[in-house]
Design a protein around this nucleic acid. Structure first.
Lengths: 175, 175, 175, 175
DNA sequence: TATGAATGAGCATTCATTCAT
DNA sequence: GATGAATGAATGCTCATTCAT
């Protein structure tokens, strides 16, 4: 039933269950058979995307060079975010509907990537874990506008990554 | 009736007209006397914020140092965006509801700021006007989450600005 | 598939077909194989209960004493009604979904019981056949509330039976 | 908006809000302006009827003769119940949605009526407060069937009242 | 024959908008 | 002008019923 993703990717949270059903070629009831609630469906979609992000981060752990590993995770992660409007809208909520395990592992993975990149002197030492969603989601959200060229988020991320280099820090990050 | 801004700042686009009226201490009818449509009200709010951004950009034109002027405009502009949830949601729409004049002048102003900063060798030469809303709105949106510290957007912008320095460019921006 | 009776006894008319199927350990389709419609199932249930009532009335015909026979039928009949919430709800409908034969025999049986009890001078002579369902169902319905003690309907019926004695009639029944 | 009572009186709990609105000559929204929920509307209707019953009971307190007072309250109360199908359906629920005050006073009033009628030797001494709703609602429910003559509930109540006379008790009520 | 996933009409509820006062 | 009660289209969700397997 994940062809429904298309509907949410297009209309965001406001997508209607009837449209999801129509797009999926099924009746509403069928959608509700799989997801008891609209919110449940949205969450499931988000978890699915989140897992993709996590997977790309895990894959990046394999990369030797710490900076390549860290930035590689960012590139792969943002690519996922940039693909789905609903996802970024959900991340923009106070309440994350994710299973803690997922979040825990995501955090652990990114912490490792960041620590290694800091240790090698590539990453600004004052960047913290909490900054990451801010960077990635900001980029994902900025990409929502459909008329923008597809490269938009790549330009954005390029700038952010350059700004994250320890050597390029003009001063400490405000706290 | 702009005390209604508070309502939209708090609840975003989903704020209800009745709440706007209540908060403003008037009846709904009065709200509709001033703005024929919810969308009109939202647009008016956005234009108002937009004007603040424009004003801060114009003020930055006065600054001697080209880099200070450009980054000063960014700091001031993002500060406005970060203050209002509805605004960033609106910017995230395909249809900009702004009067062209406003947009034209905004563009002209930023173009000047950017050209000067590029001429002085401070700003990456391949940054274009269209990149600006992407940076600023991305930061504004990333700031929506209420539990995040107030400094979040400042950290984000600091990184972006460092990444925008010509000297820090690791390569050309993808196109 | 009459284990489904339990479901209707518990939830009344609002019981769901899926629950009936689950409780009966079969699929919904199977339920629909036996009863083309929810209403058909409900009717079948009612007929079944009705038959029990009829049987108890027939058994009462064997009792010598006319008053004992009549009241015995009432006791036995109400006991059946009191056991099933759905049944009383059905009786409370305008349309009786019963096969006429059943109803005819029920009427004949009760008529006999009543005539004999009137002839012996025990039963008020102005009670008519149509009064019976009113008495019995009223008692059955009054028993629906689960928090009430199980004896509730017995208390009710005791009072009604005392009121039905010819000797206790304070006057004629209004017509 | 109590012309809506007609709809509930006719269709019971299953009456639809749209029908209530149509019958009342207003839009659904207006119905929801007065009662936030269907349940709230149903409750309000029930409370209103309940108040009528209470009022009739209070009025009966004025009657000198204890038996006349008690039975008078029953006659008046059942008359109210017999008028509204939804009411009896609601009473048939486990959860009474009434404000406690109403219930408390109802109980106090009936207790007084009963005590006086017992003291005068007219009422069976083993009838308790909890028996009253059973009698009255049973009668009200038995009256739901529209094809029955209007006198039906009067016949029923006549029998019950005769059964409630102390002199007519064939034995103690089962407990 | 039995199954239970799929269907979609139906219903409660919300909220932008109107208009009589 | 200002008010806010009234409106009703729109939306999330339920559940009796069907039918491919």
């Amino acid at each position: 039933m994940e062809g429904a993703r298309a509907v949410f990717a297009e209309h965001g949270r406001d997508a209607q269950m009837d449209d999801v059903a129509k797009r999926s070629g099924v009746g509403v009831g069928t959608v509700y058979r799989h997801f008891p609630t609209k919110e449940a469906l949205v969450s499931a979609l988000a978890v699915s995307l989140f897992e993709q992000v996590l997977e790309s981060a895990r894959a990046a752990l394999e990369i030797e060079d710490p900076w390549e590993a860290f930035t590689g995770a960012l590139w792969a992660g943002v690519e996922v975010l940039a693909s789905d409007r609903a996802f970024t809208e959900i991340i923009g909520q106070a309440e994350m509907p994710f299973e803690t395990d997922l979040l825990t592992e995501m955090n652990a993975t990114y912490l490792t990537l960041m620590d290694r990149a800091k240790a090698s002197g590539d990453l600004r030492p004052d960047v913290v874990l909490d900054d990451i969603p801010m960077f990635t989601c900001g980029i994902g959200m900025a990409t929502v506008k459909p008329h923008q060229c597809q490269a938009a988020w790549r330009r954005h991320l390029t700038v952010v990554i350059d700004g994250l280099r320890a050597a390029n820090a003009s001063g400490p990050l405000p706290s």
